[in-house]
Design a protein around this nucleic acid. Structure first.
Length: 285
DNA sequence: AAAGTCTCCTGCTTGC
DNA sequence: TGCAAGCAGGAGACTT
């Protein structure tokens, strides 16, 4: 599942291979691959030159030598692959971006079809459809104090807030669980009940976990994520919480538990991540 | 307005 | 064996 480190890995890969190339045509093979909000057919970008590949949170876009950008989101299973033109089409090939290269092309492959591409207007370098997305923790303009203030004003569980891309972007279910485990914070703690120290620890943890994943090119647990060379995803990131229910916590040995959460699940260590009374910091158990 | 729920989708896993 | 239900989740529409 592509979260910030995976999307950044894809961005880096695309940047290395396609900046400076010209789009010579875009073929769309599945109706859901074009976001309904797209202001024009993808193929209308034919003739434009790719100036840069940018990212905010999990949103990815190509800046072109025209006002419009080519915006993309990988959703659950989207992949961008730089492939030899003559190589066989993948089973879930949704979009082909032809370039002025005799050797390769860019393919968007997506099994679960939650990913999409669109043509969008941009304002001050940010696509309109990504304008509501908050800065991610690696953005040079990321304002930690302002994010902490925002969190302290929320009457919701910290796990939900971490997944809310309008507070801080880039974190999905996997890195949310990993960050909370590293910071020793229970996913169901109310945001407004967290201390300044806990918030700092949590943000430090999120940055550390994602930086480590980025260092090895993004993590993955099935074949849904690949870098642009198509190298399949099993990198040596060791998960401490996500998907580890029934396993021993690597810190204390307790059994990692899984609880239902908003149509999905949270994984945490019941001993390391204790739910406290919000005001006084008294352990309930 | 904030917070919570539902929906889109495919393929794998589980259970009868 | 076969079929159906369950499960996974990003983000936006929708409801409370």
């Amino acid at each position: 599942m592509p979260e910030l480190p995976e999307v950044e890995t894809v961005r880096l890969g695309l940047e290395r291979s396609i900046v400076g190339k010209k789009i010579t045509g875009i073929e769309v093979f599945h109706s859901r691959a074009t976001n309904p909000k797209s202001i024009a057919p993808l193929d209308s970008l034919t003739g434009s030159k790719i100036l840069s590949v940018n990212r905010r949170g999990k949103f990815l876009w190509m800046q072109l030598n025209r006002p419009e950008v080519l915006l993309a989101h990988l959703g659950m299973s989207g992949q961008f692959l730089v492939r030899e033109k003559r190589s066989a089409p993948e089973k879930h090939l949704r979009v082909r971006i032809n370039l002025n290269s005799k050797d390769f092309e860019v393919r968007f492959i997506d099994q679960r079809t939650f990913g999409w591409l669109s043509v969008d207007q941009s304002n001050a370098g940010i696509p309109n459809s990504a304008a509501h997305i908050a800065l991610d923790i690696f953005d040079p303009n990321f304002n930690r104090e302002s994010v902490k203030r925002d969190l302290l004003n929320r009457k919701t569980e910290i796990k939900r807030a971490l997944l809310n891309q309008e507070i801080m972007s880039g974190v999905g279910n996997i890195y949310a669980d990993e960050s909370l485990w590293l910071a020793k914070i229970h996913p169901e703690r109310e945001c407004s009940g967290l201390t300044n120290g806990e918030l700092d620890r949590l943000l430090d943890s999120a940055a550390a976990v994602m930086r480590a994943a980025l260092k090895v090119g993004g993590t993955s647990f099935d074949e849904q994520y690949k870098n642009v060379n198509g190298e399949s995803g099993y990198f040596d990131i060791e998960l401490s919480a996500y998907g580890q229910d029934g396993e021993a916590c690597s810190r204390c040995g307790s059994e990692i538990r899984r609880i239902a959460f908003a149509n999905r699940s949270s994984h945490f260590c019941p001993k390391c991540q204790v739910k406290r009374e919000s005001k006084r910091g008294i352990k309930r158990k």
